[in-house]
Write a protein that binds this DNA or RNA. Structure first.
Length: 901
RNA sequence: GGGCGCGUAGCUCAGUUGGCUAGAGCGCUUCCCUUACAAGGAAGAAGUCACAGGUUCGAGUCCUGUCGCGCCCA
């Protein structure tokens, strides 16, 4: 089921920027619906492009069912989901410090905040005590706080110190006058405060003065302290990050701080530091490197900001949950606390949303590949905090809540409407959540003075519903019955928490079952120097450009070959001129796939040229010919290995197995042998050839669908019936069955014998190359015809002579081996007569003898080592002994040849 | 601060539960435009498996530590 989500923040930001750049107009210059219409146009353009990319890449999807998270089907599911969550009391409104992005003026989830290391400062600022204090005989007029964000001091409502601080007994309960503002604030005790220790290993302790300014409205830790001590909360900033007294700050007027109003937060920082310096209250400034949260969207520093947001309670037990959750209880993987069933070792109630997502991992119903990613999923859920779901955007699913200040008694009690009273800043607000399909209720509410919440839902809310919403939930559709749960989710590791966990959560909560049983996390492609591909760096690649430069199949093959279990994959990016003349980014890496496809095409063409008058499978006797037995064994082994690789998501292994079979076995050896045999009138090779190609195409189709489908249709014209059974092939390869490995065809003896044959051919070729024997000249080859390799060569004499460019010297012929080149196959010496340069051969053999001797020494050492023979498995010991014997025969042969030179 | 990954040939990467002389592609060297393929064929050179310890008959593989690179989370 193909489709797109609406990528709320990203999409709106892009369109806002574009309209500002092109037309000089801001979002606020538009009516809401008009602006949304503009985004819709942009989205349609890009959606079309994305779908076209998927099609061009050969993705096999159900195109008729293409979905978008904001289309009607999905929108209804979102409304229904929200309504049910609200009805179950899992959605609430909370005043919280949120991650505020002053640039885009929206709230970001914790996951949307990027932590960057920033070179900053600690400023040491003196706050005067209202009354001086005597400590150990000295008079103290000031205390000094240290801060990295001086501008927030305008909102300070206390100074905290650790009760264990020796000065605490003199200072606790005393008051300070907040500079600039003049506000009188208390000195309180809180254990969160780090004690000052210049010698400490802890950096914080080295930088601490022991006094902490407390700004509940602008710092998460301070917010906690404020909650503990019931401190006032004073917000000193406007949503755009400028200093303002319009959002909860009422003692600015008339103070020295008034001059700061309207300044940007960073301007204000400088002004405040300067003011302290002038007033002689700046004690010190020290360099400090620390982590600062930045918006992943606008990249400006996040401002912790006090704001009203809708939340989903993820650890709240759901009363009367209607579906079975898991068998964890039976397996004693839960524990009881205060009447609640928790997942063992966590504070996650089994019947909470977090529990619903965590249980299927723990009970094994959801599996990750590679397995290590299960940890990411698990630890995220175990430490989950409530999910802020409102976003200050226009592009998205608008929150289906209408509200009105004051207690408003419900007018009757229409279906599809839930009222809830919420306390907010000392006033009561009545909120109404409306179910989908109740437009009349919505109109009535608006008539009654209710206003719809302006915010939209987090994009992930609707994305979390994807597996069910796209198939028509909340109806119990035939689609859902047929395809839910699905088998496999394939995705990137960076959204395991944002997306994967929430799909499981919602799938379990709304449908009572997991959305998928397997999660495959694929590698991420980076550029050649290990950087993420991005528009701003200009190091990204458009798949359509790769398709233009190398072809879709080449791209698919290469990507599959690069897909390993590792986290990141590097893709060198290069500008290239495409066939249509455009210059675009692509990568020479795709040569791998292009060369592969080219080879496959040529080999298939050649095979098909030779299939005329192919005998039926039932007429041939492939068991009688070594090369047939060998290639059929290789076919079966390849089918077996390829199937295993697919089952294990080993995509690089799959391409590796198929590459090796196609190129090295099928092309380099079997096709070359078939040439000779077919020329000699041996037509049995044709039937085997056709069968090999048939299986190869079926194995390759998922990776390189276009070229294999094309070859398949040509093959069907040449030989519609082929392979064991001689039955007609499927018209379309995409419908053909994945081949089954035929264990009876696996023939280790044939593979071993063929190996000897191949070594003999290579041995002759090697000598020819080393001694520059002209290709036209036949090499005279002499060997013991009674030996195992000798018999094999003799049985395939014509083939051997053709492939090696050799002539076998008649058995028993006496020959002068003095000027022969030598090589060994399985311990049997082979001589190539009269071709050599004696000095070169001596050097070659000496080197070879050295290599063999190294091998022998290694094995002898191993066999002599204490414990090896006694402790290693018998088969390992035997293997070493066999190898040693062969090597010794090889060495003897080489030594003999050296002596006779 | 917590977690995860990576470091193997000049480059990009494989190497499953420890067990043949550590592999592939690209690049490089030599020869070959042989009637499927020069995006090709034949042959070849090239690695102290980051470093230091440990476990073991045996370590690229397991354990501990160090160094370097990257990612995720707080």
């Amino acid at each position: 089921m193909p489709g797109c989500d609406h990528a709320g923040i990203a999409t709106q930001t892009v369109v806002e920027k574009r309209i500002l750049a092109e037309e000089g107009r801001r979002r606020t210059d538009f009516a809401r619906d008009d602006f949304i219409a503009r985004i819709q146009v942009w989205k349609d353009e890009y959606e079309t492009q994305i779908i076209a990319q998927l099609k061009a890449m050969g993705c096999s999807c159900d195109w008729d069912r293409t979905r978008f998270t904001m289309d009607d089907v999905c929108a209804r599911a979102v409304r229904e989901a929200f309504f049910r969550l609200f009805a179950d009391g899992l959605i609430y409104r909370g005043k919280r410090l949120v991650n505020w992005d002053p640039a885009t003026q929206t709230v970001l989830a914790d996951d949307e905040v990027e932590h960057e290391t920033v070179q900053g400062h600690f400023w040491y600022m003196k706050y005067p005590l209202v009354e001086s204090v005597e400590i150990e005989g000295g008079t103290v007029e000031h205390i000094t706080i240290a801060t990295t964000r001086p501008e927030t001091m305008l909102g300070d409502t206390a100074v905290a110190m650790n009760p264990a601080d020796p000065r605490a007994k003199y200072l606790l309960g005393k008051k300070v006058r907040l500079p600039l503002v003049g506000r009188i604030i208390p000195i309180i005790a809180d254990e969160h405060v780090v004690l000052a220790d210049p010698e400490s290993d802890d950096e914080k302790a080295r930088f601490s003065t022991g006094f902490l300014k407390v700004t509940p409205a602008h710092d998460p830790d301070d917010w906690q302290i404020g909650q503990r001590h019931d401190l006032p909360v004073i917000n000193v900033m406007a949503p755009d990050g400028t200093i303002s007294d319009k959002f909860g700050w009422d003692d600015a007027t008339g103070s020295d701080a008034e001059q700061l109003l309207g300044m940007d937060r960073f301007e204000a920082r400088e002004a405040i530091v300067e003011w302290f310096r002038t007033e002689n209250l700046l004690e010190d400034v020290r360099e400090y490197t620390h982590e600062v949260g930045h918006s992943y969207r606008s990249h400006v520093p996040i401002e912790p900001y006090l704001s009203d947001q809708w939340y989903i309670a993820v650890k709240k037990p759901i009363s009367n949950f209607q579906f079975p959750i898991s068998n964890l209880e039976k397996r004693k993987l839960t524990e009881q606390k205060d009447g609640v069933t928790y997942i063992k070792g966590t504070d996650v109630p089994l019947n909470s949303l977090a529990g619903l997502a965590l249980a299927p991992l723990l009970d094994g119903r959801v599996k990750f590949t590679p397995e290590r990613y299960a940890k990411t999923y698990q630890s995220w859920l175990e430490n989950l905090r409530d999910w802020p779901i409102s976003r200050q955007l226009w592009w998205g699913h608008r929150i289906p809540i209408w509200s009105k200040v004051g207690k408003t008694a419900p007018n009757g009690k229409p279906d599809g409407l839930i009222f809830r009273e919420i306390e907010n800043d000392d006033e009561i607000v009545t909120c109404a959540c409306v179910a989908p399909g109740c437009e009349d209720v919505e109109k009535q509410l608006e008539k009654d003075g209710f206003q719809r919440d302006p915010d939209v839902l987090d994009t992930w809310f609707s994305s979390a519903l994807w597996p069910i919403s796209t198939m028509g939930w909340p109806e119990d559709t035939e689609l859902l019955k047929a395809f839910y749960p699905t088998d496999l989710l394939c995705t990137a590791r960076e959204i395991i928490t944002l997306w994967v966990s929430r799909m499981v959560m919602f799938g379990q909560y709304f449908r009572g079952d997991i959305p998928f049983s397997q999660v495959y996390i694929h590698a991420m492609i980076q550029d050649g120097s290990g950087r993420k591909m991005s528009k701003s760096l200009g190091n990204g690649i458009d798949p359509l450009d790769i398709i233009a430069s190398h072809g879709a199949d080449a791209m698919r093959f290469t990507l599959a070959a690069m897909t390993t279990e590792t986290q990141d994959v590097r893709m060198p990016v290069e500008e290239m001129t495409l066939p249509d003349g455009r210059v675009a980014n692509t990568s020479p890496k795709f040569d791998i796939g292009r060369n592969f496809c080219n080879k496959l095409w040529n080999a298939s063409r050649f095979a098909m040229m030779n299939l005329e008058a192919m005998p039926a499978w039932s007429e041939i006797h492939p068991k009688k010919n070594l090369s047939d037995r060998w290639i059929l064994s290789r076919v079966s082994t390849t089918v077996r290995d390829a199937t295993a690789a697919v089952d294990a998501f080993g995509f690089n292994e799959l391409t590796d197995v198929l590459y090796h079979f196609m190129w090295n076995d099928f092309c380099d050896w079997y096709l070359e042998i078939a040439k000779v045999r077919i020329n000699a009138g041996e037509s049995a090779a044709k039937a085997v050839l056709a069968h090999c190609l048939d299986v190869l195409l079926r194995l390759l189709h998922p990776i390189v669908p276009f070229i294999t489908e094309q070859i398949w249709s040509q093959l069907n014209e040449v030989v519609p019936c082929r392979g064991p059974g001689d039955s007609p092939a499927e018209d379309m390869l995409i419908r053909a069955q994945w081949p089954l490995a035929d264990a009876a065809m696996i023939d280790p003896a044939a593979e071993a014998d063929f190996e000897l044959y191949r070594d003999a051919v290579r041995g002759v070729r090697n000598l020819r190359a080393e001694h520059n024997v002209s290709p036209k000249q036949k090499a005279k080859v002499l060997f013991d015809v009674q030996s195992v390799p000798g018999r094999i060569i003799l049985e395939n004499q014509a083939l051997f002579e053709s492939q090696a460019g050799a002539e076998i010297t008649p058995a028993g012929a006496q020959a002068d081996k003095g000027d022969a080149g030598t090589f060994t196959v399985g311990g049997t010496p082979f001589y190539v007569l009269g071709v050599i340069d004696i000095e070169a051969e001596r050097a070659r053999l000496t080197k070879q003898a050295g290599t063999i001797q190294n091998g022998i020494t290694g094995i002898e050492k191993k066999l002599a080592a204490e414990g090896f023979v006694a402790k290693a498995p018998a088969e390992v010991v035997q293997r070493e002994r066999d190898r040693l014997a062969t090597l010794k025969r090889d060495l003897e042969a080489v030594t003999n040849s050296l002596e006779s030179l």
